[in-house]
């Protein structure tokens, strides 16, 4: 539970003016350094004294990382672009309306005014045992408190659990995966470009991290190719209340149809595993099929194959099934503004 205490424990603070300076600081302090973008995920960790970095590298002054630019027939989004600036950007609205819906569905207006897209895709899991500082697997211990007979695990994973049953909470992540976005990562040793799908990692790869980012790495931009611009989008997020709440499950899809037949599509879910899940098998099965109720029904059933619910999250199976069905069939999204 959040408790108001006095100020956070001391850390050394750097506010570099450009990427070069930021990278040299990150390289100097390595795992002692904490990258801060909008800070909205970071502050909880610091205030609760669960993570105690020696050095915070605050990117607030790195203006070159802000903003959305056209890039070929796609877009390049600076990592420090706020969710609000993303939502308001005419090019995002024109080409990739789904990303706007996903960003607008996150958190609250004030959080979107300050929280960045880079932070949104790099945020840590919300598993409360872990966030309260329990020594679980993810925190370097040897037990998962969310996967015991008495655990509260209504929000936890139904897929791909490996010791840890936490989920990735990002709303923009599945939209970026569906849009085939590329994550541009820099460190003092160079630049690396990773598909959004592979940016996120599960406990089987590294149980202590949510993304491929290692100490010293900075996510500098997200590139969205023009491939899916203006295609048929579907985004829906189910949550307990309309504001502030993280997704129980969300779904994002992009689709191209011709004469009622599904030509091509990409489909991703979040809130179901430690990483957003791309439903490749469903994609393959519906490609070339008519876009109708029957195809949607089949897709929904396929989507939950292999799911392993915990004690309190069995409801996620029908939820996933129905969300995938709706994404394939296509009905109005649930986003309201």
């Amino acid at each position: 539970m959040a408790v108001i205490r006095d100020v956070m424990p001391a850390f050394e603070l750097f506010q570099p003016a450009n990427v070069e300076e930021a990278l040299s600081l990150l390289n100097r302090y390595k795992s002692d350094a904490w990258v801060m973008a909008g800070g909205l995920d970071s502050f909880d960790w610091l205030k609760d004294r669960i993570k105690r970095p020696k050095v915070v590298v605050d990117l607030v002054g790195v203006k070159e990382l802000e903003g959305v630019r056209a890039s070929g027939d796609g877009l390049e989004i600076g990592a420090m672009t706020t969710l609000t600036d993303l939502v308001r950007h005419p090019l995002v609205r024109e080409k990739f309306g789904m990303l706007l819906e996903a960003a607008e569905a996150a958190a609250s207006p004030q959080i979107r005014n300050q929280g960045t897209i880079g932070g949104n895709v790099s945020q840590d899991t919300r598993c409360w045992y872990y966030r309260d500082g329990w020594e679980c697997y993810r925190a370097g211990g040897n037990i998962c408190y969310a996967d015991t007979p008495t655990a509260m695990n209504r929000e936890h994973a139904i897929f791909d659990a490996d010791r840890c049953v936490a989920v990735n909470p990002s709303d923009t992540a599945p939209a970026l995966i569906a849009l085939d976005a590329k994550m541009v990562i820099r460190s003092t040793s160079g630049e690396q470009i990773v598909d959004a799908e592979h940016y996120f990692i599960g406990p089987g790869i590294d149980i202590t991290r949510m993304t491929v980012l290692k100490p010293g790495d900075l996510l500098v931009a997200i590139r969205i190719p023009g491939t899916w611009a203006g295609s048929q989008f579907y985004f829906e997020k189910v949550r307990d209340r309309k504001v502030w709440d993280f997704p129980l499950v969300n779904v994002a899809s992009v689709m191209k149809t011709s004469g009622g037949t599904i030509q091509d599509l990409r489909l991703a879910l979040n809130g179901v595993a430690a990483h957003p899940v791309r439903l490749r098998a469903v994609e393959a099965a519906v490609r070339g099929k008519p876009r109708n109720e029957q195809t949607a029904e089949m897709a929904g059933l396929m989507a939950i194959e292999g799911a392993k619910p915990l004690r309190h999250n069995g409801y996620k199976l029908p939820l996933v099934r129905n969300l995938v069905k709706r994404a394939i069939r296509g009905v109005e999204g649930s986003w309201t503004s």
Partner: peptide, 18 residues
């Protein structure tokens, strides 16, 4: 909530140095 450059922010969740 306060305004920073006319935009609402949670002042509990931003560093004064920022």
């Amino acid at each position: 909530t306060v305004l920073i450059d006319d935009v609402p922010h949670y002042s509990c969740s931003i560093l004064t140095h920022s």
